[in-house]
Simulated assay, not measured.
Amino acid sequence: MKIDHVHFYVEDAKVWRDWFVHHLGFQAVASRISSFHTCTEMVNSGAVNFLLSSPLLPTSPVAEFLRQYPPGVADVAFALEDVEGAIALAQKYDATILQPIQEHQVGTAFLKCGKIAAWGGLTHTLIEKHCGEMAESLWQSEEICDNFPSASPISPSSSITAIDHIVLNVAVGELDRAVAWYENILDFQPQQTFKIKTDRSALHSQVMVSRNGSVQLPINEPATRNSQIQEFLDVNRGSGIQHIALRTTNLVNAIAKFRASGLSLLSVPQSYYSQLKQRPGLPLSPLELEAIAQQEILVDWQEYTPLEGGNIAPLLLQIFTQPIFEQPTFFFEFIERRYQAQGFGEGNFRALFEAIESEQIKRGTLQ
């Protein structure tokens, strides 16, 4: 399994195409996958494919979505080896099948896909590809498997290379059900568990990972009424994708470029870096830490692990944008993993939680 693409429903697809190009260095992909009722644009960076759809008519499925939810992620599409088996499992566990399996052959490419309902307004398109060269005519069809992308251009110079993880927020009391749903239907496995609590609010989180390890899906639920997860659920009018983490190989340089483009990021107090220096085993030189502090990047590391060439601490560098839409729902994370760093660091998780609490206080939604 891998993430094939993520589909955003927005009010103006062309405006958001330009936003991704200008702020994050994505490439706009020339295509003709819009229908008479919906405009769809595609942007790409490395292995990351985003579809952006907006309504042209009130009858568009995007218009229907936006009447119920604010702009955000409507669909996360997974590429699987056996779509028929996945749909059969979904039916066995009473998941809602929104689109039965369709088969298409375009040129030498053979495609199967279906779609299931997940949590809130979120859906999952399931795609099985047996590909030769994708024919150009695939882009000229109006709607094949809900406008899923085919072969994508790779931009080797782009800062963003892959999707690291996608975070789902669910209502209080639904975490265990969501975990079981992803276990039973898509064969995800539970990994790390977090219970983050401050003096003001709290959340519970369960990290789910696909069997092959290539897809990470943390699921959060609120643990207090004023939790930032509850604020998301209230504003989003239900469960949904809170953020997507985009991986880069040089986070300091990438964030410097993003800041220069005008991207708004969450602030980190400089006292955070003074505290980091007191923590034993900091695997950064003073010069590196200074550059990281200048860009307000969070730092976390694990215990030293014997690796070839000496003892090196696996290191996580993370930073988060402000919500990108008008309402405080969806945001992006940027992440760099060094020295085989796996999973998620609790220190960074807590620092993110506290940074979002600060934004809640500014909005007046957290007393």
Results as ranks from 00 to 15, higher is better:
299 V>S: 03
341 A>W: 01
154 I>D: 11
336 E>M: 02
289 L>H: 00
300 D>G: 02
223 A>Y: 14
52 L>F: 03
358 S>C: 08
53 S>W: 07
235 V>Q: 00
157 S>K: 06
270 Q>S: 11
279 R>H: 12
161 T>D: 06
219 I>H: 04
290 E>L: 08
311 N>A: 11
137 S>K: 10
286 P>L: 05
297 I>D: 07
237 R>H: 12
34 S>Q: 03
68 Q>M: 10
289 L>N: 06
193 T>N: 14
266 L>V: 09
214 S>K: 15
102 Q>D: 03
129 K>N: 06
58 P>T: 05
146 D>Q: 12
346 E>Y: 12
63 A>M: 03
58 P>K: 00
278 Q>I: 08
5 H>D: 09
251 L>W: 08
138 L>G: 08
80 L>W: 10
47 A>S: 11
103 E>R: 15
237 R>C: 06
339 Y>D: 12
333 E>L: 06
159 S>Y: 10
291 A>S: 12
90 A>E: 00
159 S>W: 03
154 I>K: 07
16 W>P: 01
235 V>K: 02
2 K>Q: 13
118 A>R: 04
121 G>E: 05
10 V>C: 09
62 V>G: 00
173 G>S: 07
10 V>L: 07
36 F>Y: 13
138 L>C: 07
326 E>R: 11
165 H>F: 10
307 L>D: 11
297 I>Q: 07
150 S>A: 14
202 A>Q: 11
279 R>L: 14
317 L>E: 09
339 Y>C: 00
336 E>G: 02
242 Q>D: 04
125 T>P: 02
337 R>M: 01
291 A>Y: 01
80 L>D: 02
18 D>F: 05
39 C>L: 15
149 P>K: 04
223 A>C: 13
234 D>Y: 07
208 M>F: 02
221 E>P: 07
244 I>E: 02
337 R>W: 05
366 L>P: 03
168 L>E: 00
71 P>C: 05
278 Q>D: 14
173 G>I: 08
20 F>D: 03
178 A>L: 09
133 E>G: 13
305 T>L: 14
227 S>I: 08
120 G>H: 03
303 E>Q: 13
255 I>K: 00
198 T>D: 00
176 D>W: 10
182 Y>R: 01
234 D>L: 11
325 F>G: 00
119 W>F: 15
123 T>P: 02
87 I>Y: 05
253 N>P: 00
137 S>I: 13
332 F>G: 01
192 Q>F: 09
90 A>N: 10
35 S>V: 06
294 Q>W: 05
200 R>Y: 15
110 F>V: 14
62 V>F: 03
311 N>G: 00
47 A>Y: 08
87 I>V: 15
194 F>H: 11
316 L>Q: 10
115 K>G: 05
33 I>Y: 05
193 T>F: 14
349 F>A: 15
134 M>L: 13
81 E>L: 11
143 E>G: 04
59 T>S: 15
218 P>L: 07
56 L>W: 06
303 E>R: 13
46 G>E: 01
326 E>D: 15
158 S>Y: 03
121 G>V: 00
144 I>D: 09
54 S>H: 04
124 H>S: 00
33 I>E: 10
1 M>A: 14
96 T>W: 09
125 T>E: 06
27 Q>A: 13
348 N>L: 09
45 S>P: 04
117 A>L: 12
88 A>K: 15
131 C>Q: 14
207 V>Q: 02
112 K>S: 11
339 Y>I: 03
